[in-house]
């Protein structure tokens, strides 16, 4: 865990109001694991003061990494307005990522919307361990289907669902998940996306008897496990999304 000033080395609008920002921070890039996040101070303004958490999207060389930023409010608007050579104050890498060291040889990644953020990094990492990787991804439409080409390259089979049917199946990722599980026979499912989707993925995984890990989102203040603001109801206690997670097994959550 470090607090440092990271220089922005690149920024690109990858879809409407979604930006890929490359941050130069060697210490963080070297330590980061898939599913971990960085806590960025988004502004020099007085009105919104809390940091915003972003998944480590992917490593860029050995010294930098990308975050994916969707503009949803003041903080993300400020961040999306930065330019190369600007700096941001960063704390990270934070939290517990996906368990990539488990004994498994086939894994299915499930991503919905901005839940795509940790998936390329994750796919690359587990592919290094000779794991066969498969992907199911969903988005509002073709334009919001981020990283499709990269995931296609890293995974053996990729299934797509879009709300408007502009690419792949018309509907939700969870509509096609059972079929993909049957086709790919994964030993692990790794999911990231909206809470309702993750609940549904957890149920489908359980019915197929496949261990599942989900990456949760929560409003955060400290990001380091001190304030207990990002609590999530787990099986028998509240857990901290920032430091116990953001990745949890669905067993831990009692889902």
């Amino acid at each position: 865990m470090h607090q440092l000033t990271a220089r922005i080395v690149a920024k690109e609008e990858v879809s409407q109001d979604i930006f890929r920002i490359t941050l130069f921070a060697p210490a963080v890039a070297r330590e980061a694991q898939p599913g971990q996040f960085v806590h960025l101070y988004c502004g020099d303004h007085q009105s919104y003061i809390l940091r915003r958490p972003f998944s480590v999207h992917r490593l860029v060389g050995g010294d930098a990494f990308d975050v994916l930023v969707r503009v949803v409010g003041e903080g993300t608007r400020w961040l999306a307005g930065r330019r190369p050579k600007d700096s941001v104050d960063l704390i990270g890498p934070l939290g517990r990522g996906f368990n990539v060291d488990g004994q498994f040889s086939r894994a299915l990644l499930v991503a919905g919307g901005m839940g795509i953020a940790p998936m390329v990094f994750l796919a690359g990492k587990i592919a290094e361990n000779k794991v066969k990787v498969y992907t199911v991804m969903g988005a509002a439409g073709r334009a919001q289907l981020l990283d499709f080409m990269d995931l296609k390259r890293l995974t053996r089979r990729i299934a797509v669902a879009t709300d408007d049917g502009s690419q792949g199946y018309k509907g939700l990722v969870t509509d096609i998940l059972s079929k993909e599980i049957e086709e790919t026979q994964p030993e692990r499912i790794f999911a990231c996306g909206p809470a309702a989707m993750l609940r549904s993925v957890a149920g489908i995984s359980r019915r197929h008897g496949v261990p599942c890990e989900v990456s949760l989102e929560a409003r955060m203040a400290c990001g380091v496990g001190a304030c207990l603001g990002c609590a999530v109801q787990a099986r028998d206690a509240y857990l901290k999304v920032c430091s116990d997670g953001p990745v949890f097994t669905t067993d831990e959550l009692g889902w």
Binding site: Q46, S47, Y48, I49, L50, A218, R219, M220, A221, C227, L228, G229, C230, A231, V232, Q233, A237, Y238
Partner: peptide, 23 residues
Amino acid sequence: VAGNRPPRLWETPSGMLNSIGLQ
């Protein structure tokens, strides 16, 4: 003490609301 039911945080202009509940 288990603490209060989430969500426990809400950011406000120049501040934040919390309802941790002495967890």
